[in-house]
Structure formats: structure tokens, C-alpha cells
């Protein structure tokens, strides 16, 4: 009886441990998962006509974006190593009405001054609360919309905490729209559930 009980405990532990491991998928499955589940990795809120949005970008996704879906397994491993110290977020802003680069413009502002702010100064106004750590933005890249997309988009990089995956809170304290500190949240579970991309060795 005791042996059966112990066996049951071992089996249960094994099953639970197996369930904790992220599922391994190929490129198509990985992209399909993200397509269906971006909403879990994204948070938005609207304040006074401005929509603030933050999205967690898995490093593997960024690698596929840059090098294509035909990337070799060795190249994937190399790029994973290169990006291992950082975590990336896409931060976007949009005006509910009109063009955000001209929305509620003050007398002293111009479209160029806003462009300059988002290109060169926005990084100092973004921070990440990763669990209990508050991290500043290490690097950011402004992606111009050329007046075509309603969104202003910034790619922000933060130091990666190598502790267990924690809830991520992005803080945006933009100095254009005077809305104060805006906090957006990505739950830890959404990040833990991302499957692991596996390529067959070529």
C-alpha cells in the first residue's frame, strides 16, 4: 500500500513538472500562437483621448522578424545569446481623434518638436517594474508612422531579470500630453505560457 502511495506521488510530481514546461513548437505554430494570443501580452488604456499601449515582444519573435522564418537553428541560438540580457516591449500611442503628432498641440509645440521628443527623449520617460525591480529604458527606437498609421510606435529595451518570470508593469510618463504616469500591466502567466520555439538542426 505504501509503495502504491509513493508511486502515485512520484507520478503526480512528474505530471505536474511536465505541465510546467513550456510547450515546444515549430516556427509556424509559434507565430500562430502569438497571432492568437497577442492580446494576453498587450495592455492598453485611454486617458483624455490618448490611447497608451504596451506589448511584450518575446526575443524569439524579434529574431524571426529580423532574420526571417527560414533561420537556421545555430543562428537562432546565437541570436538568442545576443539578446539574452534584454527584454523588449513595443510601446504605442494613438489619438482617438486626429493625428497624434498634432493632437492638442500647445502654442510652443510643433510637429518637429514632438518627433524630436519621441525620437530622442522618450526613453527617459519610460520604465519597467519587473516584479520588485524598477528598470530604466536602456535603449529605444522610434518608428515613424509617416502620417500613415495612427500609432506612434517605440521599441523599448530593458535589462532582463534572470529571476523567475514576474508580472511586468510598463510606466509611461510622457511629457507631451500631460497625463502623468500611466501604468500598463502584462501578467506573468501570459509570458510563461509562450511556447518555446524549436528548430530542427540543419
Amino acid at each position: 500500500m505504501k509503495e502504491y502511495r509513493n508511486l502515485f506521488i512520484y507520478l503526480l510530481t512528474f505530471v505536474l513538472a511536465a505541465c510546467q514546461q513550456p510547450k515546444q513548437v515549430n516556427v509556424d505554430q509559434y507565430l500562430e500562437y502569438l497571432d492568437k494570443n497577442w492580446y494576453k501580452l498587450t495592455d492598453s488604456r485611454e486617458l483624455n483621448g490618448i490611447v497608451y499601449q504596451a506589448r511584450f515582444l518575446p526575443n524569439d519573435y524579434r529574431i524571426l522578424e529580423r532574420f526571417g522564418q527560414e533561420i537556421a537553428s545555430e543562428k537562432l541560438q546565437t541570436e538568442r545569446q545576443n539578446l539574452s540580457d534584454f527584454q523588449y516591449f513595443q510601446i504605442r500611442l494613438k489619438a482617438q481623434t486626429g493625428n497624434i503628432m498634432e493632437y492638442n498641440m500647445e502654442e510652443y509645440e510643433s510637429r518637429d518638436s514632438r518627433q524630436y521628443y519621441y525620437t530622442h527623449e522618450f526613453a527617459r520617460d519610460i520604465f519597467l517594474i519587473d516584479g520588485t525591480d524598477t528598470l530604466r529604458c536602456e535603449a529605444h527606437q522610434f518608428i515613424s508612422n509617416y502620417g500613415i498609421s495612427p500609432w506612434v510606435s517605440v521599441l523599448a529595451a530593458f535589462e532582463r531579470s534572470h529571476k523567475k518570470t514576474a508580472e511586468k508593469r510598463i510606466g509611461i510618463n510622457d511629457h507631451i500630453f500631460h497625463n502623468g504616469k500611466v501604468i500598463l500591466k502584462i501578467p506573468a502567466s501570459a509570458i510563461s505560457q509562450i511556447p518555446q520555439l524549436t528548430l530542427s538542426k540543419s
Binding site: E46, L47, N48, F177, H178, N179, G180, K181
Partner: peptide
């Protein structure tokens, strides 16, 4: 004044 503006912008929303 700036801080008050930020606070009221959020509060009103």
C-alpha cells in the same frame, strides 16, 4: 501647475 494638470487629467478620466 504641471503636476496638478497631470493629476486632474487622470482623475477626470
Amino acid at each position: 501647475n504641471e503636476y496638478d494638470r497631470q493629476i486632474w487629467n487622470q482623475l477626470n478620466q
